[in-house]
């Protein structure tokens, strides 16, 4: 019998998924470089949740840290998946928008400031529906403004995933980094099942959920940029790489024709398996690129 006394490396790694929003944000930044904006001690809470007998949180589940990443001025905005599934309400939405706008303001005034979004969110907070929807629009407008100057990097680590309106926010960012535990999609599995029936999507089928929304599939299809291990160091290094590269030549969300043609080319007369989709999609993309070259 072989007796292994060495603990494998994956056990001693610092898991990023294990970290709460504030710790995740800190793990990415240069030590000692950051300060928190509108932190929990400012006690700006959702006024709507207590009316619905839900305990609010002093940071409304949104953590904003301003500092540097590998020397580059950056604001990191992290949503706490453990609070109301990371949903966006009035306060958390306003914090996000304001932080992005300040980064734009700094960038326009010669101090280029990038943004990193740590998105663990089900999207709009249903208890604050209209305000949450408005927040999504504002956040998106702010990203469009900032991404002319500095990259906006979205990290989806898991295990909540990034859904609903916030998936649009991810979609317009400069880069998307995912782990294989992460999920990215507009409608979540339960919403699809509720709207279109269990034949369309069995939301209890976790294998199916990850085959469709999971990091491996999203990166595999090219709608996200890099698939990372659940390791704080590896994720921090990947974020640094993105910031170093800077703005992409063209943002993913600007490639309208590419994606429109890709969708148009799909044969939807029969059920497309996730793996087949990945393969066909990539072939199509490759051809399109050749054609345009």
């Amino acid at each position: 019998m072989s007796v292994a006394t060495v603990i494998p490396a994956f056990v001693t790694r610092e898991s990023f998924i294990e970290l709460e929003a504030r710790d995740r944000a800190q793990a990415l930044m240069d030590p000692g470089s950051w300060r928190e904006l509108v932190g929990p001690f400012d006690r700006i809470e959702s006024p709507w949740l207590p009316m619905q007998s839900i305990a609010p949180q002093s940071d409304d589940g949104c953590v904003v840290l301003k500092g540097t990443i590998a020397g580059q001025a950056t604001v990191v905005i992290a949503l706490e998946g453990g609070f109301q599934a990371g949903s966006i309400g009035e306060v958390s939405g306003a914090k996000m928008t304001a932080a992005l706008d300040l980064a734009t303001h700094d960038s326009e005034n010669g101090r280029k400031t990038a943004a990193v979004l740590l998105l663990e969110t089900g999207g709009v907070r249903l208890q604050e529906a209209n305000l949450g929807l408005a927040a999504i629009a504002e956040v998106m407008a702010s990203i469009f403004a900032l991404r002319q100057h500095a990259p906006v990097v979205t990290v989806i680590a898991g295990t909540v995933g990034c859904f609903g309106g916030m998936s649009l926010v991810a979609g317009i960012s400069s880069y998307i980094l995912m782990t294989r535990e992460a999920r990215l999609g507009l409608n979540g599995a339960e919403v699809i099942e509720q709207e279109s029936g269990i034949e369309e999507f069995d939301s209890s089928d976790r294998a199916l959920i990850w085959a469709v929304f999971g990091g491996e599939q999203r990166v595999g299809m090219g709608v996200a940029d890099e698939l990372l291990q659940d390791d704080a160091k590896e994720i921090a290094a990947a974020v640094q790489r993105c910031l170093k590269v800077g703005l992409p030549v063209v943002h993913r969300s600007q490639q309208i024709d590419l994606y429109r043609d890709g969708i148009a080319a799909l044969d939807t007369s029969q059920q497309i398996e996730p793996l087949t989709l990945r393969k066909n999609w990539n072939n199509k993309q490759a051809k399109t690129k050749e054609g345009s070259a």
Partner: peptide, 10 residues
């Protein structure tokens, strides 16, 4: 070890 689908998050 092959966990049942319901325990998978990948």
């Amino acid at each position: 070890y092959k966990p049942p689908a319901r325990f998978r998050s990948w």
